[in-house]
């Protein structure tokens, strides 16, 4: 420590410290997911982290840079990616997603700080288009024996089609697992799911999206430590619930209520951990609100009127792509500066 005269500028935490704290915040979600879906999710997380680290290391070596794997950011991307995949997602496909996530989503643009979009979502969008059947195969939660037995699709041989899950699920002591997420049930069959279930996460869904409450609490940890822009999360959630509220008010029989909207699908995970990606979001005071609003609005429009039942991923990617524009048009005037004559 060194003593200095004023001004006493506070040292902002380094990238590495922030990133490590985000990983801490993600750990409870990972743990809950492993508890809920079992050993398959553990393997999914491990494969994703290992592949991401290897890919980043390899690309750094190929391009003659010093490896940047020590700054934890790649671990965040890897964990987030794994949390957005279905629990029984074939591990080889998860490796493909991880490779695309780091190689295309991050390193191709120049590494941390230069990515245009959230790398985890780039990886997920790739496998969504590449393996549409596997990424929409859901498995029941809290199965007995989940810590001893893999979900059979997880261990599919690389490059081969995973066997259908229906038979395996039918052999389990369950009554009426529909094989669909709460969102899909609502959208295609107008079957609502209890909000309490959605809050605590006793539903089918992607590995880490089920418990809205847990994600929210982990988000609060980051906000308290001032390591996350709460305004983005707030505007995503506000606009999403407002938009769905309008539709719910118009016709309660088809459209879900705002609470369902907030707690179902990947909205909470997306709003807390992905929309707030520091690199791919705008930095201007107005920009963050507009950016969040765009995500919230587009998500609901895709959910209600698109072909897919979930729209958070595409909404965030779209907003990521438009964030330079949002930043540019919302530049605050420098205090005391006058408008240059003849412009604007």
């Amino acid at each position: 420590m060194e003593l200095r005269a004023s001004p006493h500028l506070r040292v902002s935490p380094s990238v590495e410290v922030i990133m490590r704290n985000v990983v801490y915040a993600l750990l409870p979600i990972c743990a809950f997911s492993v508890y809920q879906f079992g050993i398959s999710v553990f393997a999914l997380l491990a494969v994703s982290v290992i592949t991401c680290l290897l890919t980043e290391n390899l690309i750094c070596r190929l391009s003659g840079k010093t490896p940047t794997t020590g700054d934890w950011s790649v671990v965040i991307s890897a964990l987030l990616l794994a949390l957005t995949l279905p629990p029984g997602f074939p591990l080889w496909m998860a490796a493909v997603a991880s490779f695309v996530c780091v190689a295309v989503g991050k390193m191709l643009f120049g590494g941390l700080g230069f990515n245009v979009m959230n790398p985890a979502l780039v990886g997920r969008a790739f496998v969504q288009a590449a393996f549409p059947a596997s990424i929409t195969s859901w498995t029941p939660y809290m199965l007995p024996g989940r810590f001893a037995e893999f979900i059979p699709t997880s261990l599919a041989t690389p490059f081969l089609r995973p066997a259908p899950l229906a038979e395996w699920i039918a052999g389990k002591p369950l009554d009426g697992f529909s094989g669909a997420t709460p969102l899909a049930l609502m959208k295609f069959d107008h079957v609502p799911t209890d909000s309490i279930q959605l809050l605590i996460g006793t539903t089918a869904g992607s590995a880490g999206e089920t418990s809205a409450l847990l994600i929210f609490i982990c988000g609060i940890y980051l906000v308290v430590r001032k390591m996350m822009d709460w305004r983005i999360t707030a505007s995503v959630l506000l606009v999403a619930s407002a938009t769905s509220g309008i539709f719910y008010w118009m016709d309660q029989s088809i459209y879900p209520d705002p609470l369902f909207t907030l707690c179902s699908g990947g909205l909470m995970l997306g709003a807390v951990f992905m929309a707030t990606d520091m690199v791919a979001s705008p930095v201007t005071p107005w920009g963050v609100w507009i950016y969040g609003a765009l995500i919230g609005f587009v998500t609901i429009i895709i959910r209600l009127f698109g072909g897919l039942s979930e729209g958070v991923m595409y909404a965030i990617l779209l907003a990521n792509a438009s964030s330079p524009l949002i930043s540019a048009v919302t530049q605050p005037r420098i205090y005391g500066a006058t408008k240059p004559k003849g412009t604007e």
Binding site: T136, S137, G179, F188
Partner: peptide, 9 residues
């Protein structure tokens, strides 16, 4: 068809 809900509908 599960996985082709929209098209089969």
């Amino acid at each position: 068809i599960s996985g082709a809900t929209v098209t089969s509908k």
